[in-house]
């Protein structure tokens, strides 16, 4: 069971004051929360790294939390920022693979993850959402995604780039 909003807010306030015991509890709770959060938004194999990067970001940016406001919307904003950053890195990685004429291994996606991500991706144009889903969630290569969607490889790259840019603009507002 994950601590509730008010408990996490109080732990964060204590942590900002330097209370290490509260901070350890907070990070443990945040880790559990983030695993569940990302579990619906990215391929399971990428969750460990993403959770760790987000916890490090939380640590580095802990002064940006306003104790008078709710904690989870702040954590979620940082989580989304890191998530989109992570998708961009995978994109670059895919580029390299394509350049080296290697083929990415398709990965079995979590059904729950796909549904939740599709809900978020529903806010961007369908063609962009489709290729982001194929390349980022299912792990297809650019060329495979191009074949499946009927888009050219360059259009797939452009649509992924534009889609991620739009997602990035919606980190706080969605």
């Amino acid at each position: 069971m994950i601590a509730n909003e008010e408990t996490m807010r109080l732990l964060m306030v204590k942590a900002q004051g330097g209370d290490k015991q509260c901070y350890a509890s907070l990070l443990t709770e945040c880790e559990k929360w983030l695993r569940r959060y990302y579990g619906r938004k990215i391929n399971p194999s990428a969750i460990d790294d993403l959770v760790q990067e987000t916890l490090i970001s939380l640590h580095r940016k802990r002064a940006s939390y306003d104790p008078a406001r709710a904690f989870l919307p702040w954590l979620a904003a940082i989580g989304r920022y890191r998530w989109i950053d992570s998708l961009r890195k995978i994109y670059r990685h895919e580029h390299d693979q394509l350049y080296e004429e290697m083929v990415a291994d398709p990965r079995e996606g979590d059904v729950t993850a796909k549904v939740s991500l599709e809900r978020l991706l529903g806010l961007i144009p369908p063609k962009q959402a489709e290729v982001i889903g194929l390349v980022k969630i299912e792990g297809l290569s650019i060329s495979e995604a191009a074949t499946m969607t009927g888009q050219s490889e360059s259009l797939v790259k452009v649509n992924i780039h534009r889609g991620l840019k739009k997602l990035s603009a919606m980190v706080e507002t969605e």
């Binding site: 900002q16 330097g18 901070y23 990070l27 490090i56 002064a63």
Partner: peptide, 11 residues
């Protein structure tokens, strides 16, 4: 991260 914790003044 806990070892590295120092008090911060919220912005």
């Amino acid at each position: 991260l806990v070892d590295d914790l120092t008090p911060v003044k919220p912005l």
